[in-house]
Each structure stands twice: as structure tokens, then as C-alpha cells.
């Protein structure tokens, strides 16, 4: 019998969600998987990628009614008999953390952080976290008004990074630019806006997964080679950096992290000091890169949840390149009609 895994974040757009990478990794694993896409919009590309996503459903927004969200999952579960949900979007994690006991009763398993873990990796608590894992955190201030922004930029200095609570970050060279980014981010993602000291260096990322008992089930590190204007990694190279891996393992053990995560750091050019930038509480959009190099974390997560044997090693080659590219699919308007009118493919 196929294992049914529902995956969100199938918006493979210019600010890509991790869902399609997760599904691709699962389809290439040794598991016999039926993948279900949980979309929030009929135009999410994953809805149409029937080579890796067997069926898709439109979900109600996670910011809406909790009951409507549960009802929708109940309906999908009644049809699909979901074994596992892999949540891949920051904005929906709070509702999944809230309803996990309900899902467990329904027989659906998830490996996600607890509310306490989720709070600990909050951008506003980075300094605390950095101390715990023995790295540095860039100086930052939290702003909810233009007055705060002025005070913060005076303290932090220019250039600085202006960041949203969930997504987006821009480098501001003066107060005019900072104000522009402040409004732009607040309109899209709300408050608080974070003003962070700009540090010259290279950005590195580590993807991993914690078992919730202080152990990781595999980690994989990259250096970002090129980024999009939204700051998303476009090309990357795999690296074997012991200091980075050690810091990542401290995150997992220190927080007893449960679920997928992305550990984003910057290594300062002048000092080679590691600065933690962010810990994203889910797999990143480039998670397939790790799978393609032998560290298939979605597969390991599914096996862990189903009490199957899984690998935990992090043995991979450095010097492997990830080349992301744009692509087009030609579909019929009937496909759009189907998902738009019935909410499923």
C-alpha cells in the first residue's frame, strides 16, 4: 500500500516554497509514495506538476478559521487516507502546531517543532540563541513605527539590513531606502520590522532535520553562490565545513529540535566569525539539493514517523553544484477550471 504524504508550499515561483522539492525527493526515494499537494492558490505551479504531485487540493488560508482548516484536512483525509503531512511554510506552522493533537487522533503524523521551539528561533531572540550555540548574532533592533526605524538605524548605522517578520530582507544604504523597505515589507508581511547590522561576508545555509530528542537525522551545508533579488538562493555549492556543522548540531541538541529546518549563517570576511542570521522552522526550497547528494531528509522524516529504519549519516561530497532554472509547462484551461471550481485536481 502506498504511503500518502501531503505536502504544502508547492508554490514553485520566484520566491519558491519547498513543497515541490520535498515531493521530488520523496518520489526519488525507495518509498512507495502518493504525494498530495496542499495549495493556497489555483496558480501554484505544483498543482500542475503531476509528475511529482499525484493530486492537489486547495486549502483555506491558515490565518482564517481553525475549524475550516481542520474540516478541509478531514475531507482530504476521508478521500486520501493521509499518513503524514509535511508543512513547508512558516506562516502555516502555528496552526499546524495548534492542531497537531487533532491530526494525531485522525491518524495523521507530523514532525514539526513545538511552540516553544518555534519561539526560541524567532528573529527577535537570535542573540540568546547565538550564545547557546556558541556563534555570534548581528546587532539588530525591532521596529513597529517609523520613529523606531529612525532610532534603530541611528544605533545600528548604514548600510543595514531591513527584514520582515517572516520573509524578505533588503540592504538599505540610507534612511530614504530604509523607509521605503520598511513600508514595502510591512504592507506584505506586517510587523515587527527588523533592522540588522550589515556584515560583509559569505552566506551559508545548512538544511537538517531533528528527531525531537536532541539528535539530527542528517545535515547538509551549502555556500550560496547567487541570490535572487528577493534574497533567495539560486545557485549553490555543497561544502564540508566542520565549524558550521558543529554549530548546527548544537542547534539541534540545544533545542531538541523536532522537524526540518534551515540554519542560515554568514561568515564574516575579515574575521571568519560565524553569525547566525536565521533559523527557518521547515525545510528550505533547495531541500532537493541535499536529496540529490544522498541526504534525502524528506524520506528520512517519513521513515522516522512511520517507525521504519532510516539513515542518519551526513556523508556527502563537497563541490556539488545546484543550478536552479526557470521552466514552462503547457496545460489545458480545463486543468485550471478543475482546480478553480472543485478545489482539487
Amino acid at each position: 500500500m502506498k504511503i500518502v504524504v501531503a505536502v504544502s508550499g508547492i508554490n514553485a515561483v520566484d520566491n519558491p516554497g519547498p513543497g515541490t522539492g520535498i515531493c521530488k525527493a520523496l518520489k526519488e526515494s525507495d518509498l512507495d509514495v502518493r504525494t498530495i499537494g496542499l495549495a493556497y492558490d489555483a496558480m501554484e505551479p505544483g498543482v500542475y506538476m503531476d509528475n511529482i504531485i499525484d493530486k492537489s487540493y486547495i486549502m483555506p488560508y491558515p490565518s482564517g478559521s481553525r475549524e475550516a482548516f481542520i474540516e478541509r484536512i478531514k475531507h482530504i483525509h476521508s478521500v486520501e487516507k493521509i499518513d503524514i503531512i509535511i508543512s513547508a511554510l512558516d506562516a502555516e506552522l502555528p496552526i499546524y502546531m495548534d492542531i497537531e493533537p487533532v491530526l494525531t487522533e485522525m491518524g495523521i503524523k507530523m514532525l514539526i517543532p513545538t511552540k516553544e521551539m518555534f519561539k526560541t528561533r524567532d528573529k527577535l531572540r537570535l542573540k540568546e540563541l547565538a550564545e547557546t550555540i556558541g556563534v555570534k548574532a548581528p546587532e539588530y533592533r525591532s521596529c513597529t513605527s517609523i520613529r523606531d526605524l529612525h532610532d534603530s538605524t541611528e544605533e545600528v548605522g548604514f548600510p543595514c539590513m531591513v527584514k520582515g517578520p517572516f520573509y524578505e530582507a533588503f540592504k538599505a544604504n540610507n534612511i530614504g531606502e530604509a523607509e521605503g523597505y520598511f513600508h514595502k515589507i510591512a504592507m506584505a508581511w506586517g510587523y515587527p520590522i527588523i533592522v540588522q547590522k550589515f556584515i560583509t561576508g559569505d552566506e551559508y545555509d545548512v538544511v537538517g532535520c531533528g528527531d525531537g530528542k536532541g539528535n539530527d537525522i542528517g545535515v547538509f551545508a551549502i555556500r550560496k553562490m547567487t541570490l535572487t533579488k528577493l534574497g533567495k538562493v539560486w545557485n549553490a555549492v555543497s561544502v564540508k565545513n566542520d565549524r558550521l556543522i558543529e554549530a548546527t548540531k548544537k542547534v539541534v541538541s540545544g533545542l531538541s529540535w523536532r522537524g526540518g529546518f534551515e540554519f542560515e549563517v554568514l561568515v564574516e570576511s575579515k574575521t571568519q566569525d560565524i553569525y547566525v542570521l536565521e533559523i527557518n522552522p521547515r525545510f528550505p526550497a533547495w531541500v532537493y539539493f541535499a536529496a540529490g547528494c544522498g541526504i534525502n531528509l524528506p524520506e528520512r522524516m517519513v521513515k522516522l514517523l512511520l517507525n521504519k529504519e532510516y539513515e542518519t549519516h551526513s556523508n556527502y561530497d563537497s563541490g556539488k553544484l545546484m543550478i536552479r532554472f526557470t521552466n514552462e509547462m503547457i496545460k489545458d484551461i480545463k486543468d485550471f477550471e478543475q482546480i478553480s471550481t472543485t478545489g482539487e485536481t
Binding site: Y204, V237, G319
Partner: peptide, 17 residues
């Protein structure tokens, strides 16, 4: 460091070439 005959050098720790 991985150094090839062509003069291409890759640092597996930092990812720089």
C-alpha cells in the same frame, strides 16, 4: 584544497573557487 591540472582550485570548506 582540490587542485586540478588546469589550475582550478576548490576549497571544500568555504565553497570558494
Amino acid at each position: 584544497l582540490a587542485i586540478s591540472d588546469s589550475g582550478f582550485i576548490f576549497d571544500p570548506v568555504t565553497g570558494h573557487s
